[in-house]
Structures are given as C-alpha cells and as structure tokens.
Design a protein around this nucleic acid. Structure first.
Length: 269
DNA sequence: CGATTTTGACCGGCGC
DNA sequence: GCGCCGGTCAAAATCG
C-alpha cells in the first residue's frame, strides 16, 4: 500500500545512447597527423557506442525474457493458490479480503485489519530476514510453521512505542531467495526517513522493493576545468551509471523484485 | 550498559 | 478433553 506510492518502478529500458557531446569546433582546423588521429578516435568511439548499444539490447532482451518467465510463474502460482484457498475455505466464503489468508483471529474485530504483502528478492547467501524498509523493527519472536520449513520472524515497529504495526517475514517456499513480508496495521507516526535522516545504522532508509544499488562515481571526476569537458563528463557519468547498473549482478534481481512487486500490487494481491 | 536478538515456554483458538 | 498450531512473552544471550 504505502510502498506503491514510495516506489516508482517505471524503468526506461530503451537502449538509446545518450546524445553525444558536440565535437569541438577546432577539430576541423586540425590537419595532417592530428586529423587522422581524431578520425581514428571518432571511429573508435562510434564502434564502442555500437558495441554498447548491442550489449544493452542483449540486456534488454534478457530482462524481457526474465519478465515473461516471471509472469508465467506468477500465473501458475496464482492458480495454485486459488485452488488451495478454495479447498481450505470450504464453507466460510465471507472472508472479505483475499490477502488475509490464514488469519482467523479477526473475527472479533470491528474494523478490518489493514494487511499488506510485500515480496523482496534477496541474495541467496543472505540468510537474514531483515527488510530495509526504513522503519525500525524489533523482533519479538520466531516460529517454524507447518507449511514452510523456513522460520517465520515476527517484528514490531519500535520507532514509536505506541505504534501498533507488526510484520511477519518469511522466505517463500517456492523460491528461497524471495522474502515475503506481511504488514498488519498502520503506522501512527511519520516515516523515519521523512522526519530525519536515520543514524548510520547498518540499514539506511530504503523501500522494501528497492534493493540498494551502489554507484561508484569516483572514477569519473573530471580533472580538467574547461567548459568543453562538461558535456563529456555528463556523457561519462551516464555511461558509467548505465554500465554500473547493467554489470551489477544484483540489478537484475532488484529489477525482477520491483517488477514482480508492482505486478502483484496491480493484481490486488 | 542499553538496545536488540534468540529461543523456549506459554496462551488461546480450532478441529477431532 | 486433548493435541496441534500460530502467535506472543520474557529471560538470557549477544551486540555495539
């Protein structure tokens, strides 16, 4: 719910290269050896750009394949879930929300529980169930449930002592790299990251659907101070950002998680 | 030393 | 009533 407003998963996957900086006007005045050198440099740059375009196109194709595969898996899982629910529910078809499965404790509640689900793909080696969504959570229990060998962790919001929000975090049965978090209730306090920048704990404020991507921009600092280098610096920045994103192995996973999260929200999961 | 995590015990609901 | 199960509590352990 709240995360959909915080996260914009729209990505422009167009493989168009950024506009080239205009060539310096004094290039045309060069002649002889320097002219052939610049021509060679242009050809080399063009070739590199073509190569870059091809690489990004291939990347785009891969991502498209991943997305279609995820859609397939999602529809399959959804049908399985529907079948499972129809078996389990039997007579009580008055459950108003499909998201509140296995929650039979709200029979005495007057107002409906606010429950939301969030799915995050993490590194397979990451055994922790801590989700960096910007709030401060205090773990108060852990259980191994019957339907899932992975333990389910119970968290309370510890940012405000009166905050009633709880969340359950458990790895998916199907894919151990996917962490499913179920949020219950509404925060009665503003988001910590909106109040102030959180102290430098191990987990900075992040949306649960937005894994951290680190961009190393230290190498692109221009050394020259002339104006001609400005456009080139921008070009370098764009190139390095694109290169960092496409080379980062976690980017695919992050993208997949973001897309699947958006997908699930759109289908009123 | 305070905050947080771990983990076994406990509680209440539910089905048989 | 009994056992199972999910959820919570709270003391001990751990961490920064």
């Amino acid at each position: 719910m709240e995360f959909s407003s915080l996260l914009d998963t729209s990505l422009n996957l167009n493989a168009k290269p950024p506009p080239l900086p205009p060539p310096p006007p004094d290039y045309a005045k060069q002649e002889g050896e320097s002219q052939s050198f610049t021509a060679f440099g242009r050809n080399e740059e063009r070739g590199a750009l073509v190569e870059e375009i091809n690489r990004m196109s291939a990347e785009n194709k891969k991502l498209t394949e991943m997305l279609s595969m995820m859609c397939e898996n999602y529809s399959g899982l959804r049908s399985q879930l529907a079948e499972y629910r129809s078996k389990k529910r039997k007579s009580n078809d008055n459950v108003e929300s499909s998201s509140s499965d296995e929650d039979s404790s709200n029979k005495t509640l007057i107002k409906p529980n606010i429950i939301s689900h969030s799915h995050v793909r993490t590194q397979a080696s990451d055994t922790s169930l801590v989700m960096k969504d910007g709030y401060q959570w205090r773990k108060y229990g852990q259980k191994v449930t019957r339907d899932n060998p992975s333990p389910r962790a119970y968290f309370k919001c510890s940012f405000a002592p009166t905050c009633p929000v709880k969340k359950k975090v458990q790895r998916s049965v199907e894919d151990q790299s996917i962490v499913i978090a179920t949020y219950e209730g509404e925060h009665n306090h503003p988001h910590p990251s909106k109040v102030e920048a959180p102290p430098n704990r191990s987990s900075p404020s992040l949306s649960p659907l937005a894994p951290r991507i680190t961009l190393d921009l230290t190498n692109s600092t221009p050394s020259s101070d002339d104006l001609r280098g400005k456009a080139q610096v921008q070009h370098c920045l764009v190139e390095q950002m694109a290169s960092t994103l496409t080379k980062d192995p976690t980017f695919k996973a992050a993208l997949a998680a973001a897309i699947s999260g958006k997908f699930l929200q759109q289908n009123k999961w």
